[in-house]
């Protein structure tokens, strides 16, 4: 038997043993039968799944709309924070305050304050749809994080690249647009994807302001069936959607590392 085959076998056996033991411990717990009934009820699972999947479309819509906005707003804030010179001090200051505040606040608070507070003012013409405030809150929260990721990318582009662009007569804006930002964005794609895995999960937080999305839908099902299995179904949906994205991010990170090693030869 080859060394590779043997180590694969050892890995497989040890995995099976460890997980087998875990399952044995859980299943032999004194209260297992009742937990099994209230969390792993096959009937409830299949009956609640359609409603849960339908509601998940709202999460997907929230995610997609917010993501596009976050990519734009985050980049805009990052650019504002990287503007040099005393002329831009007020702009830099405001952008920094924004980032600091929204990174400090727990997401749920922002969603509550925006989702209940602004419509509560009853200003004519201001939207009342919870979906609108859900998108607004997620965008404000995540743009603060994403702008920091972009900024790290912008800072990692050597100043000589900007100098070369400016030397050719490109304006400050053109240098950012064509030379600095394209290089910066390439470098920060993996951390950006990490933030988007977080965003994907945080879309459930907006259930607190009345958006009927997957988490709210599973709460409704749980209340109707007096059974917690709908939450397990929701958990499975997130696992199925998030793990491929996480693997893809890892793959990108690895590929970049290999490239860097290759070019540093």
């Amino acid at each position: 038997m080859g060394a590779a085959a043997r180590s694969t076998l050892i890995a497989a056996v040890s995995t099976v043993v460890v997980f087998g033991l875990l399952v044995a411990v859980v299943v032999s717990a004194p209260n297992w039968p009742s937990v099994q009934e209230s969390f792993l009820n096959g009937e409830v699972f299949w009956s609640s799944l359609p409603a849960i999947l339908t509601a998940f479309r709202v999460n997907i819509a929230l995610f997609l709309v917010s993501e596009v906005l976050i990519l734009g707003v985050g980049l805009f804030v990052a650019v504002l924070r990287s503007l040099p010179g005393p002329v831009f001090t007020p702009v830099r200051f405001l952008a920094t305050v924004y980032v600091d505040i929204f990174r400090a606040l727990p997401g749920v608070l922002v969603i509550y304050i925006l989702g209940f507070g602004i419509p509560g003012l009853q200003i004519p013409g201001v939207p009342t749809s919870p979906f609108f405030y859900a998108v607004l809150a997620l965008t404000l929260l995540y743009s603060a994080y994403v702008s920091e990721v972009y900024r790290a990318g912008i800072d990692s582009v050597h100043p000589s690249q900007d100098a070369a662009a400016r030397s050719l007569g490109l304006s400050r804006f053109q240098s950012l647009r064509y030379v600095v930002i394209p290089q910066a964005v390439r470098r920060v794609i993996p951390p950006l994807l990490n933030d988007f895995i977080g965003l994907q999960k945080d879309t459930v937080l907006v259930s607190y302001i009345g958006v009927v999305e997957i988490f709210r839908a599973s709460q409704i099902k749980q209340a109707a069936t007096f059974n917690f299995t709908p939450y397990i179904a929701t958990a499975l949906v997130f696992i199925v959607v998030t793990i491929p994205l996480a693997r893809f991010t890892d793959w990108l990170v690895n590929r970049d590392r290999k490239r860097q090693l290759a070019s540093a030869r």
């Binding site: 000589s160 690249q161 100098a163 070369a164 662009a165 400016r166 030397s167 050719l168 007569g169 290089q183």
Partner: peptide, 18 residues
């Protein structure tokens, strides 16, 4: 920016856009 159009400069480290 207008002035720099008319002055070319080449740096020791090339500084091509990668």
């Amino acid at each position: 920016d207008r002035v720099r159009r008319r002055i070319g400069i080449v740096y020791q480290a090339f500084n091509l856009f990668p």
